[in-house]
Amino acid sequence: MSEAMSALKGETHTGFATVAEAGLTGMVTIRADLADPALAAALAPLGLTVPALRQVTAAGGRSLGWMSPDELLLVCGYDEAPGLAATLATALAESHALVVNVSDMRARFTVSGAKAREVMMKLCPLDFATLPVMEMRRTRAAQVAVALWRSGADEISLVCFRSVATYVMGLLEVSSRRGGEIF
């Protein structure tokens, strides 16, 4: 898999916050009945629990985010994603579920720094001041869909579709330029 390249190969810009494409990231979409005990059982070997409404759980360097009432997003290593998808699909074979590797169709970004949220305020109709750490939100960044969560006190992670990665990086870069601090 050495020839795999993320959409922007880790492009980074530093303004009043640092915006970076996070490089190759494994992602697995799980669509299932979130209350199905088989789902919890399938995730248990990873140390992950099914997140509650809008929450993100994490364990062992992987995280699991609530995307909709019947959809979760597992974020993991790029190389392990196909295997994890296959393992989970097998574990859920008896349930009505869809597990699919989506690592290649998305780009992941981080926005970090004390003023990280001032970058995102310019793009998303979302109240970042009250957004708790590790709460997942799906929303709009300017003209495209994104999913985001505060992955740390001063860090926001977001994912968008791969085809618009250049656009999203453009938004982030422009919005984080020095002089554009809001407060």
Binding site: M5, A7, K122, A142, Q143, V144, F161, R162, S163, V164, A165, T166, Y167, G170, L171, V174, S175
Partner: peptide
Amino acid sequence: AEAKGEIFQPLRRTP
């Protein structure tokens, strides 16, 4: 606002 030049609108790019 920011919607000018390269980010006037999202252009979708294939790999």
